[in-house]
């Protein structure tokens, strides 16, 4: 019972603190913008811890965050190995190959309005499909190691980046294009100096969508066969052998990796498209 009361008090105090911070005159500072969500996240973690203790939930069902942290600290070596296998080898390589391929294809088909018109609706449709489903096929084509994981990621990342890039290349302001015409600028000059920079906000939209998909692809592909390492492998065997705290530790790694990856892409977006109204805020 005491756990619940502590959690409740913490919740109320945290909420009051957040309200106070948001109402204060510092509410727009970076510090407050950072601290407020962190406090909110902490309340959730503490509520979880409290609920597990208060209701005596078995660790085989839902371990408390403290146990997960403990397991995390004890198995950093294994977690790192899994991280390397799934994130660095599978997800990242696939992501770069897929994004680069999509960009190149977008530039190539952009020269033909006919192709662009035909590919855009198809690409949009495919981008909305559950492409993860191709994982077993690609695993059977490329084997159990990271190559097949990267292949799944390539396919998943390709379409969002492709349609966004094609869309972005089309969306340049008519006046800016006319300006290029008055300079008698060549196709490549116009592409390089006007259309690619103008398309950057779109391209980054695709890259951000791809970033959230990349880890999903790499992990799902491991459910269909992998060497005896990797986050997806560990999760599926962990669930089977009821070492749930290890599974949660892997989930924490996945969450950190996913957030970090997304954060890096968003950071680059800010650097590259600083001029766009959405970034000037």
């Amino acid at each position: 019972m005491s756990w619940l009361i502590v959690a409740l008090i913490f919740w109320l105090a945290a909420w009051a603190a957040n309200v106070a911070m948001v109402r204060s005159k510092w509410s727009e500072t970076t510090l407050v913008r950072f601290v407020v969500p962190v406090i909110f996240g902490l309340t959730l973690v503490i509520a979880w811890e409290a609920l597990v203790h208060a209701f005596n939930v078995s660790a085989a069902i839902l371990p408390p965050p403290s146990a997960v942290a403990d397991t995390f600290a004890r198995s950093t070596g294994m977690l790192w190995e899994d991280f390397t296998q799934t994130v660095l080898k599978g997800a990242l390589r696939g992501y770069f190959i897929g994004a680069a391929a999509a960009f190149v294809v977008a530039i190539l088909i952009d020269r033909s309005p006919f192709l662009t018109r035909g590919l855009l609706p198809i690409g949009n449709f495919v981008a909305a499909l559950p492409i993860v489903g191709v994982a077993p096929i690609l695993v059977s084509w490329f084997g159990f190691d990271w190559q097949s994981k990267a292949a799944v990621v390539v396919v998943m990342v390709f379409f969002p980046v492709l349609v966004n890039t094609v869309q972005g290349l089309r969306e340049t302001d008519a006046m800016m294009r006319d300006l290029m015409r008055t300079y008698a600028a060549s196709y490549f000059k116009t592409l390089w100096k006007l259309r690619i920079p103008a398309a950057m906000p779109f391209i980054f939209n695709g890259l951000k969508v791809g970033a959230t998909l990349a880890l999903i692809g790499a992990i799902v592909a491991e459910y269909f066969g992998s060497p005896t390492r990797g986050m997806g492998f560990r999760i599926s065997t962990g669930v089977g052998s009821l070492s749930i705290d290890l599974v949660w530790a892997e989930i924490v790694v996945a969450a950190l990796a996913g957030t970090l990856f997304y954060g890096v892409v968003a950071w680059f977006e800010k650097k590259v498209t600083f001029w766009h109204p959405s970034q000037r805020g």
């Binding site: 957040n18 970033a211 996945a254 996913g258 954060g263």
Partner: peptide, 20 residues
């Protein structure tokens, strides 16, 4: 308050691979 507390987590939630 809700916006500042929840919005960053909503974004992070999408970066967490649900399949895990």
């Amino acid at each position: 308050v809700i916006e500042m507390s929840v919005m960053p987590w909503a974004i992070i939630s999408q970066a967490i691979p649900i399949v895990a």
